[in-house]
């Protein structure tokens, strides 16, 4: 019986592994490499969960500091990048549960955004995407982030989120269905800097 060849890790995963090894060898001095490599990706995952950039950065900061004090946790993990994603997700959920705010920003005013000159025309589209993601339940938006932006398979997403691949697939499917409605040209997008009363309960998580 022939076996399928093992999946080759992509360049990014390999780089994360190398950074984790360096961190393990050199200590906190090597953290800047890991930060530069992963911070943007980790922050955008955390923002999707916490719905707030400040909280998302707190989560990422806390996780990377923890990794620096116990670097072997990361370097010995089977998949360091997935392990890091899981840590940030868990920390974001902890922050989200701790935060007992009933008022949540509906717009994107808390986000620090960046658009290059050649992408200026697409900025409206980017804003619409981020707003639409904020209107999804966290369990669906995090699957979208991991699938579309991180390029993980459903099996890998299931591993990160501690759910079965089938659950990840169905969440993704539901999310895309909602997003297709939210991002349709005629769909009204509520975007304002004002606070809107919205219950941020555990059910939303």
């Amino acid at each position: 019986m022939s076996q399928a060849p093992p999946l080759q890790p992509d360049a990014f995963t390999t780089q994360v592994q190398q950074c984790a090894d360096r961190l393990s060898e050199l200590g906190v001095a090597a953290l800047s490499g890991l930060f530069d490599l992963t911070s943007t990706r980790l922050v955008r995952l955390a923002v999707t969960i916490t719905r707030n950039q400040h909280d998302a950065e707190d989560a990422v900061q806390s996780v990377l500091a923890r990794v620096a004090s116990a670097p072997r946790l990361l370097s010995r993990a089977d998949e360091p990048w997935h392990y890091l994603l899981r840590m940030v997700r868990n920390e974001s959920l902890v922050i989200l549960r701790r935060r007992r705010r009933t008022l949540t920003l509906v717009g994107l005013t808390d986000l620090l955004t960046r658009t290059s000159v050649d992408q200026a025309e697409q900025e409206e589209s980017f804003r619409a995407v981020w707003l639409a993601l904020r209107r999804l339940p966290v369990r669906q938006s995090e699957v979208v982030v991991l699938k579309v932006w991180e390029g993980l398979t459903f099996a890998q997403i299931g591993d990160v989120l501690a759910v079965s691949p089938a659950t990840a697939t169905s969440r993704y499917r539901y999310a895309l269905e909602k997003l297709s409605v939210l991002l349709a040209p005629q769909a009204p997008m509520v975007e304002s800097g004002e606070c809107a009363a919205r219950q941020q309960g555990a059910g939303d998580v």
Binding site: S39, T40, V43, R44, V47, Q53, E57, V60, L111, L112, T113, R114, T115, Q122, E123, S125, F126, R127, V129, W130, V144, V148, W149, L179
Partner: peptide, 10 residues
């Protein structure tokens, strides 16, 4: 969705 991935930055 993919195109909007780098819109938010730390």
């Amino acid at each position: 969705l993919f195109a909007a991935r780098d819109y938010v930055t730390p």
